[in-house]
Simulated scan of single mutants.
Amino acid sequence: MNRKLYLFDFDGTLTTKDSLFDFLKFSFPNHYNKYFLIFFPFFILAKLKLAEPGRIKEKFIARFLKGKSYHEIQSLSNRYFEKNYPLIIHPKADEYIKSVSNYHDKFIVSASVNFWLQPFADHYGMGLICTEAEFDEQGYFTGKFASENCNNEQKKIRIEKEVDLSLYDEVIAFGDTSGDRAMFELATKSFFKHFN
């Protein structure tokens, strides 16, 4: 049997909405609109490539979560998963992932942060390659990322670093934006907006 590696972008590929904004809005309903409005001009600059998207994302997330303990954030993430799975997952994607034999390996590869992605990865029995949060020695979120923003070329770099591609006969990748192109370069088959 051919051994296959499945690589799935998360936001917009497996989901019907952007999980970053959805997670923060769900977890902090009283503060979300105020902070979003403060950051809105910076999101526009990032969209226009006049500011680095990863830095804007880092600062936005820090506004909500900096100083919170690993356990607090894990609790928020688990609650988000429990209330929002499977609502934000494309039904076809859910069905497809569950149909992939455990003989093959599956990874979520995402620019989103490991906080709220981990419960989804655990549920599906998938590996997780994503933007990682930095915690201090006492276990509190510093407001910084411990890795580069896992998008564009970084997706390819992280996959090559964390997965031995020589073990696989086929690499099958799913994405929905130009940020997935570098990941597609590693694939023997790639699917664009396959589930939506």
Rank of each mutant, 00 (worst) to 15 (best):
Y140Q: 10
Y140T: 14
Y140N: 06
Y140C: 05
F141W: 13
F141K: 00
F141Q: 02
T142C: 03
T142V: 10
T142M: 13
G143E: 13
G143A: 01
K144I: 07
F145H: 00
A146Q: 09
S147F: 07
S147I: 04
E148L: 15
E148F: 04
E148R: 08
E148V: 07
N149H: 09
C150K: 01
C150V: 08
C150W: 11
C150A: 07
N151I: 15
N151P: 03
N151Q: 15
N152Y: 13
N152V: 12
E153S: 07
E153A: 04
E153K: 11
Q154A: 07
K155R: 06
K156A: 14
I157D: 01
R158F: 09
R158S: 02
R158Q: 07
R158Y: 12
I159A: 02
I159D: 01
I159F: 09
I159N: 02
I159V: 06
E160L: 11
E160M: 10
K161R: 14
K161D: 11
K161T: 13
V163L: 01
V163R: 00
D164N: 14
D164K: 11
D164H: 09
L165F: 08
L165K: 11
L165Q: 03
S166H: 09
L167R: 13
L167E: 10
L167W: 06
Y168E: 12
Y168A: 00
D169E: 15
D169S: 14
D169H: 12
D169V: 13
D169L: 14
E170M: 08
E170T: 14
V171S: 02
V171W: 01
I172L: 02
I172Y: 15
I172A: 10
I172E: 08
I172P: 01
A173W: 03
A173T: 10
A173P: 07
F174V: 09
G175T: 02
G175W: 00
D176Q: 12
T177F: 03
T177N: 04
S178Y: 11
S178H: 14
G179L: 06
G179E: 12
G179I: 01
G179P: 05
G179Q: 15
D180V: 02
D180I: 10
D180P: 13
A182R: 00
A182P: 01
